[in-house]
Design a protein around this nucleic acid. Structure first.
Lengths: 357, 357
DNA sequence: CAGGAAATGATTGACGTCTGTCAAAACTGC
DNA sequence: GCAGTTTTGACAGACGTCAATCATTTCCTG
């Protein structure tokens, strides 16, 4: 009841090991009749190649590279931590991950970094994309050089990448809208939407989702969009002013970063606060949720995104099709009650002596 | 820039390969001084054992067995499907999974099945536990025989299993309570709690969570608990009657199965329906959510649970400690907007850490 | 310093696959 | 039946680790 080996297949097919191997690895030079026999034997025995042995023999090393935005935004910090954690966890898996930081929101810098990547020394690449013609060209050139390219968190509009791993921001926006509607059951309200930048594509999509959802709720009106540029201080000023100007605000949906300022403004508010929905379960958001200053956080699960990106890169590097459905991350909704046990950016203890991965 | 091998470690430590191997695999008979040198070299080189080569050499085969409730409850069907899917996905990973069904909610039958398991032919076991002394004894005996035992979805109260993989049902209940409160912002209400069976521990915990959460909401009152015994027809009758008797019902939290009946009762209702929260994103629940007959579904992510159970079983079989945090699943909240793309059964990943394959 | 125990080194054959080489065998066309 | 091509078989050396043997060297004890 042992797992069948290629030797078993060869014997069952009545051919030599070499021939079975030629079929399995498509080396060519095999008569159609023999090939059919081998394939039948593979089928009959339920043979699967032992990937461990194969990779061992091939001395395959997967060299992946992540180009992530620098800066101290909690979300990107969490993303980088997730990459490092996965790098540790997969060290035993013939996967070598290099993490470099590029200036955030800077398409030119990203393009430069992409152009510096040597296709011979890299099997796969994951980037948080900013769209630009030069970026698209760099991606195309890398792909032509045999490098798998995956966009993470934010997609490059025109670029022909292998896959986009991240949430559907339209869905995220609609989800926020649904939470708003839920919190306004039986009453009308006024919702303040706050983006990081109107120009950011993901924020625009979230906003569109929100609008779509609220279009189905007659009692809910939307205020003009506020732009906080992901800065806590601007956010604080902006939200403070809006709350003072419009006492009827019953909901705030913040689509970007800088929510520390939003929480401060809420804390300073003398009356019952509006319903608040944020993005990304970073430490501050978590605290605000636990403190009851925020109602819900929509999270794109960076750890899961990194894992999915790596699985896809690995599949592509092996010449397999990317695992279906792995790329599309469904945004998680966190309420104060269902927070995951450990703060974002969990540490994984990678044992060096331990056995299997 | 090659990955260091144990040979490299031995050379760096100034000992022979055999000695390095003795340290690595704790074979004993190594002087403390040499051991320290080897460990230092491991540290310095960042050596990690090549798990593929190791398992290849060991010709290790992980034989895991799942004992899951039979019957046609959608949830268990999804759970079984998840096991089969993982079995396929890990076939190349030296993991052989056997799935057997045992009569649902029958501690005696489970105990019998457990007693039939031969410890020599099984490295790990995952069961949906029903608590009983005989079950506990069988688990203890298996563990004594070197079999790792994990409870899945439902824990065995008194039993000394290696781990419980599943959600915290108290948390799930509190989460439902939060959704109820969110949907009752600015108004009072009357909530009908429905369990499968009052005796079921997980349902009792969910109910306790709900009560805890609603205790903090002055305007929300709880009706006496209804018991539907996981049967659609009973559920339909019971909820229909309650809705007729108590026109003021503004929320329903169903903690068990049989929700098809609940949805039918709602569909038959002539007036605006109450806020409805269910458990488990099975096909019916999904449809009801999409049709707007249900507001939220709390899901325990069976696919993720199975993956976590396997990771833990594997770690235990290797003699490693079970990966921390992997066992506790955070319940997911699904609204009509953030449903995963694929019907239940597809790959969905975990929150905490990436599993290397 | 002998005798014995402990520690170490050297070596070997798996494990299942990959990749290459070389020669033998089976075909093809004429 | 011959030369030329295609197909096949046999074999060997990796890959990194495991597990075992056997011969040495070093250390401790009396």
């Amino acid at each position: 009841m042992r797992k069948p080996t290629l030797h078993d297949v060869a014997r069952a097919a009545g051919v030599s090991y070499a021939t079975a191997d030629r079929v399995l690895n498509a080396r060519g030079g095999v008569a159609a009749k023999s090939e059919a026999r081998v394939r039948a034997a593979i089928e009959a025995l339920g043979y699967t190649r032992d990937v461990h042995a194969a990779n061992l023999s091939r001395r395959r090393l997967y060299r992946f590279r992540f180009l992530l935005p620098d800066g101290d935004h909690s979300f990107f910090r969490a993303l980088r931590a997730a990459v490092l954690a996965e790098a540790g966890a997969r060290a035993g898996d013939r996967v070598r991950i290099t993490l470099s930081e590029v200036p955030a929101f800077d398409a030119e810098a990203l393009a430069e970094a992409l152009e510096r990547v040597e296709p011979e020394a890299c099997d796969g690449l994951a980037i948080v994309a900013s769209g630009s013609a030069r970026v698209s060209a760099a991606i195309a050139s890398l792909r032509a050089g045999g490098v798998a390219v995956v966009t993470l968190v934010s997609d490059a509009p025109g670029a022909a990448r292998d896959a986009y791993v991240g949430i559907d921001n339209l869905v995220a926006g609609r989800t926020a809208g649904r939470l708003m509607r839920l919190g306004h059951t039986g009453r009308s309200g006024l919702v303040l939407p706050v983006v990081g930048a109107r120009a950011a594509q993901d924020h625009a999509e979230r906003l569109a989702g929100l609008e779509q959802s609220l279009a189905g709720a007659p009692g809910l009106a939307l205020l003009p969009v506020a732009e906080a540029f992901d800065s806590p201080s601007r956010m604080r000023a902006l939200v403070g002013a809006a709350l003072a100007r419009e006492p009827g605000i019953s909901g705030i949906y913040s689509m970007g970063a800088g929510n520390r300022g939003l929480v401060e403004a809420l804390r300073a508010l003398g009356r019952p606060r509006p319903l608040v929905v944020l993005h990304e379960l970073v430490p501050h958001a978590r605290e605000a949720l636990e403190a009851g200053l925020v109602d819900a956080v929509i999270d794109q699960k960076p750890v899961q995104e990194v894992a999915a990106a790596l699985d896809i890169l690995r599949a592509l590097a092996d010449g397999r099709p990317a695992p279906a459905g792995r790329a599309r991350i469904t945004p998680a909704i966190y309420l104060p009650e269902n927070l995951p046990a450990c703060p974002a950016g969990e540490e994984e203890d990678n044992d060096m002596m331990g056995g299997a991965a």
